[in-house]
Amino acid sequence: MTVLRTVNLVKIYQNKHVPVPAVRGVDLLVDEGEFVAVMGPSGSGKSTLLHMLGGLDIRTSGEIWLDGQRADTLSESAWALLRRKKIGFVFQFFNLVASMTVADNVELPALLAGVSSKEARARREYLLDALSLTERADAAPAQLSGGEQQRVALARALANKPALLLADEPTGNLDSRNTRDVLRLLSEVHRDGQTIVLVTHDARVASLADRVVSLLDGQIVDDGRIARRRPGRGGAGEVIDLR
C-alpha cells in the first residue's frame, strides 16, 4: 500500500519578486513499511521537500497524497489534524515543550491520540531506553544538551507509531556513540514496519534505508535501492588494506 505520493510537486520562493525554485517537479512514491533516505547537496531542496510533506511549508503546485487522502488541498486545520494522526516529525530544530519533562514530551503525542496512559508510558520507556535517555526522563528540555534534545524529539516522533516518520538530519547533532543508538532504533522500528522518509548527509543513516533518492537543484536525479552485497570477498570484513 502507498503511504505517501507526490505528483509533480513544486516549491518556488519569492525573493524580492525574483522567483527562486527550490523543488522542481518531484514525483515520489513511498510504500508502507519502506525506508527512504533523501540525499543531496545543501540547497538541493531536500529540507523544503520534507517540510512540504510535513505541512510546514505550502507547496506552490502539485499534489501530496497521504495514506490515500489528498492532503495539499485540505484546510489548514484539517491538514493539521491529519498530520497529528499520521505523521511523526523530527525537525532540525527540536520543538520540545519547555514546561514539560522529557517523559511527558514523549508521552504527549500518544496521549493526544487517545492511547491509554499505561500504553503510552510503556512506549515512552522503550524509546527512552533505546536512546540511552532513561536517566533524563524527569529533566526539562532546557537542561539537555543539543544531542539529547534531538534524541528526545525522535522518541516523541515515534511515540505514536505514526503511519509516516519524517526526519530532517536526525543525527546532525550527535556524536558517534549516540548516532549508533539512533541507527539501532531506526533499524528496529523499520523492521517492525515503520515507514520512514528522512533527509540526511550521514551515510551511516542513509545506508540503513531500502531506497535512496538523490536530489540536485530541486529535482530527483537518482532513485534506487541499495544493492545487497554478498558477504565475503572484498566486503567490509576486510577493512584493513594489506600490502
Partner: peptide, 23 residues
Amino acid sequence: RMALINRQRRHYLALMRDLNELA
C-alpha cells in the same frame, strides 16, 4: 557522468551498510 556518480553513490552506501553490519 551523472550515471557514473549515481552508481558510485549506491556502491558506497552498500559498503557503508556492510560496515554497519560488521560493527
